[in-house]
Design a binder for these strands. Structure first.
Lengths: 196, 196, 196, 196
DNA sequence: CCCTAAACGAGACGGTACGTCCGGTCTTAAT
DNA sequence: ATTAAGACCGGACGTACCGTCTCGTTTAGGG
């Protein structure tokens, strides 16, 4: 998969290169065609790592997967500052939907969420990841509220739930696309909702 | 689990009692404490059934679980007719949240959705179930639109996604409760949004 | 290895063909060149069997190996009846040494005895196998005693220990050959000893 | 296990105290109850030593165990000089059986012999150890032969094989005790055998 | 009214993945 | 330079679960 070049040992300290290889391979396999199963054995083999090196640092397969996914997803989603709620929210959701819109990413996130339901360790990672993303979006909304674009008494957490709820619902059920058009529609709807 | 009383054979016709026992046990185990794993073997044993009897009628484990879940969830959610969107939507969401609010039901749905991500048969069942629920809610919204309570050009499917998105998002992540209060807040938010 | 022809299932009864394939492969691997490790996985693979089929019927790897070995070794060692102790004992030991003299068989027995020291199940099997072989040789000696060829008061069990002791000692340490010449020398020595 | 007192580094010279601790711990663990597995890790930990310190001086685990065992067993077995074969042989075998008769020692030797079958280094050590013990016993027999107590043409190596064969056979199979009574019976039998 | 075909309970089976254990190698940091 | 510490790769272990298969039993319904 990767790791053709010999990876040197690092003695009694954790080998960061091995950690990287494991997480990279995990994401690669999760987003793959599905012909290679996403197994601890396949991850270890593709990363050129012993299974024990995985279990030394992660408590379960789900934990590896979730850490790998959480590290990727959410990175590189800029928080725009256009001066208006509709602009900010639209930009943010477009970027989010675009990042998630790839077939591979949808596959990764679907399986990550599934794993989080079975593996308590994965669930913990998932909750932490979700909380992080929610905080970012809530910050965006709070800025708009401070500008007076949100009617007082609006439950911002509920707005956040609606945005991410629609996203995850579509990821998991697959009944509707996740494109820029949909992102804009959602942004307009939520903006109208909070306008008061 | 159940099935203490001997279940008589039915000769060369499908044994309806066995089918019932299988689906009942499946839901029972899915909603259990998790100390009993939900496997085909445990289902078969608890239902007093041979594994082949399961695989004769369902193509995979996921199909059994999803059929069991779909049969339960969604039943007994009345569609109110109060004459106003807020009343109808509030009533519907309160009933839905109440049905889902039990710890056991949340567990059942969590695992059902997880299974739907892995097992194509389960995924198919899940999509059909989801489509059914969406149709009900969309019907409620269309009635309101016909009454003039919804501004023209509103994307009703997006509203449906927002409602069920919030529901599933909270079921799967578990970061917020699912009570009547939340149902009402969501109903008010969506009503405000579509009012135009 | 073997088993190119499809092996039919036998329903809810133990599959005797699978049992045979497992034991045959075990002996084959034990006596092999050593380039294929004797592993539950390799045995299962070579026998065309799932690992669980092995663990369903044997408690541990050692138990499989010992049953396989015990079934082979000791079979086809005839108990001669020449009318004299020297003739009987010589014939028996020659046959025994010849059966064991092959490089492959030595390898099998060495590893079997080693396994018996580590795996309690294997130890139990080994003791039973050893007891069986001892009983045969002791019977031979008792016949000679009844003919008056053994001085009264001779401890026949000690004589048996001397014969099999030499055999196993040489198998395990490998410092001396196991040929017909050695068998005859041992038979003469023991005959002289018990003559009185 | 031991090593509570800090053992000082000795810079660039081999640390003799570490070597001692390793061998002592090895024997201690081999003779233990079996609840602590005898692995390189447990030996290193109990000896307060790094694994590399073991592998710097021994080529494999088996080599450590065999050196530890060979160093102990065979020490303190005096070669008596009573003037008669029966006396000398009886005394030697009684001392040998007594040294081996302890439950712990039997366990140590059992596992050492098992290791010798798997690990070539251990096998080499074992053969050397065995050769040493054989030479001692053969010397005893040669003295008797020189005194005329052994009939000409007797194969002394075969006699040695019988003595140690009985010993090891009983150690490994455990079907008979190893006490002074048994030592005497064996001495009498062998004396009668070689008397001619 | 019997006889055959289908459904059933039971459970062995081949296969795949899990998470643990251990042997032997390697690097770091301390002495 | 040697040591204690311990991470690392490789690979075997024994368990769990899936979906398939066969057996022997039971009943319904066609001849």
């Amino acid at each position: 998969m990767t790791g053709e070049t010999r990876r040197p040992h690092t003695g009694r300290r954790r080998n960061e290169a091995a950690r990287r290889a494991i997480l990279d391979v995990a994401v690669e396999l999760l987003g793959g065609t599905g012909d290679t199963p996403v197994t601890i054995d396949t991850i270890a083999a593709a990363a050129g790592v012993g299974k024990q090196t995985i279990y030394r640092w992660w408590p379960s397969k789900g934990a590896v997967l979730l850490e790998a996914v959480a590290e990727r997803a959410g990175a590189d989603i800029p928080v725009p500052d256009t001066g208006s709620l509709l602009g900010d929210l639209g930009g943010f959701l477009r970027a989010t939907f675009r990042a998630v819109g790839h077939e591979r990413t949808v596959s990764v996130l679907r399986h990550a969420m599934a794993e989080a339901q079975r593996d308590p360790h994965a669930g913990e990672h998932m909750r932490a990841f979700i909380a992080g993303r929610r905080a970012v979006l809530r910050g965006l909304l709070e800025r708009a509220r401070d500008r007076g674009e949100v009617s007082p008494g609006t439950d911002l957490d509920l707005v956040v739930d609606q945005a991410y709820g629609v996203l995850w619902y579509r990821i998991l059920v697959g009944h509707a696309p996740l494109s820029a058009t949909e992102a804009d529609a959602l942004a307009r709807a939520l903006t109208a909702q909070v306008r008061g």
